[in-house]
Computed example of a mutant assay.
Amino acid sequence: MSENTSAEIGALSFEQALEQLEAIVGKLESGSGTLDDAINAYARGAELKAHCQKKLDEARMKVEKIRRPDGDGALSAEPFDS
């Protein structure tokens, strides 16, 4: 994928990326389109999946930071069980 495509995917919210990924999966499962279309869709889907995973990891880290207060009233991190 080009840098423009990567930058465009990077600007998507988790929900937008997931919606696009679901549409790609549906198209690939239906078998419609050419082989080249399927390859391009798969490549974009892989980038969207990586973007969604990054967003989930960022959210997990935020939750870990605010999950439990320590003894002095400050918030401390507790490992997140996935």
Rank of each mutant, 00 (worst) to 15 (best):
Q16Y: 04
H51L: 04
A50Y: 07
E15M: 11
R44T: 07
F14K: 05
L56M: 07
G33P: 06
E15D: 13
S32W: 08
A23K: 15
L21M: 04
T34L: 11
A46G: 11
D81E: 14
A38H: 08
L12N: 03
M1W: 11
S13T: 11
N40C: 15
A41G: 05
A74L: 06
L28I: 07
E22D: 13
E19V: 06
E8T: 10
D57W: 06
A46Y: 13
A74C: 06
E29V: 07
A41P: 01
V25N: 01
I24H: 01
E3P: 02
I66T: 03
L75K: 05
L56T: 02
E47Q: 12
Q16I: 02
L48R: 00
T5K: 13
G45H: 03
A11Q: 11
P69T: 05
D57R: 12
Q20T: 09
S13M: 10
G10K: 00
L75S: 11
K62V: 11
N40F: 15
M1P: 05
S76P: 03
E15W: 08
D36H: 09
E22V: 09
Q53E: 08
G45V: 01
G73Q: 00
E29W: 03
G45F: 01
S13A: 10
R67M: 13
E58W: 03
G71R: 02
R67T: 09
Q20I: 06
S82I: 14
